[in-house]
Design a binder for these strands. Sequence first.
DNA 1: TATTGTTATACTCTATAACTATA
DNA 2: TATAGTTATAGAGTATAACAATA
Lengths: 136, 136
Amino acid sequence: MIVPLGRALSAAEEPVLRAHDLSMWAYIVLTALAERPMRTQAALARAIGADKTRIIGVLDDLQERGLIQRRPDPADRRMRVLSLTAAGQRAHRSTQAAIRAREERLLARLGAADRQGFLRALQVLSALPPEEIVGG
Amino acid sequence: MIVPLGRALSAAEEPVLRAHDLSMWAYIVLTALAERPMRTQAALARAIGADKTRIIGVLDDLQERGLIQRRPDPADRRMRVLSLTAAGQRAHRSTQAAIRAREERLLARLGAADRQGFLRALQVLSALPPEEIVGG
DNA sequence: TATTGTTATACTCTATAACTATA
DNA sequence: TATAGTTATAGAGTATAACAATA
């Protein structure tokens, strides 16, 4: 049930993201960096559950459009310090608002109790480390 | 949250499926046919949200292993009537039991109220036609 | 030598289009 | 001609491996 639902929700959010000129991964990256800047790209990749090679193109694009900053760390120039620009923060906030409005319309279909249980269950299960899910 | 969770759950169920020699799609097909036999492959594909070409290899394999029957409809020999064999029913039941046991262990982490809300919310949202999800 | 990021390559999954057979 | 199923092909998304820069 969850996998098809995830697909449907992704499909539902795609028009919203396109309207804000962001790919799904770009939005995920902005969301992660909005929570806190990262010292390396590998750390960002881990945080969002992506391969480190997967996000390079995304970062290239976001940087080119001035939504993120990506500078070599002066202390260790192998690393790239990542953070949102002011424009990036604005883009993230407006996109997130649009997505939340859409989610709100869907959650309105649920009873208050189910809704709360659903969101709490998602948080609990998402917070589990993968080993615990696999191991049961 | 839902998409990564779905990925994690899929990954968690994979060892169980492998132990029963079934792919994810094979299991989905068996589950659909356990509910009710289908008159055409296209109907099955629609029912499980897959492309009609996607399931052909799956059906080939299941038929070869004697888990499903797939016979031309005498009334219209273009169509293939699909149904589980006795062995297919057994395979489905034992695999489903193993998967449910694993799900049970995960759901045990939730409070009773959250758990009920979570499952009901999943049912409600999954039952929504795609248009309503996209349209909001 | 070990690590960060990058590029190039291969692999998996899925969808599209062309084909066969029945009607 | 239209439909069910099949096959072959191409596309997107992802992961793996080799490479360059820095430590």
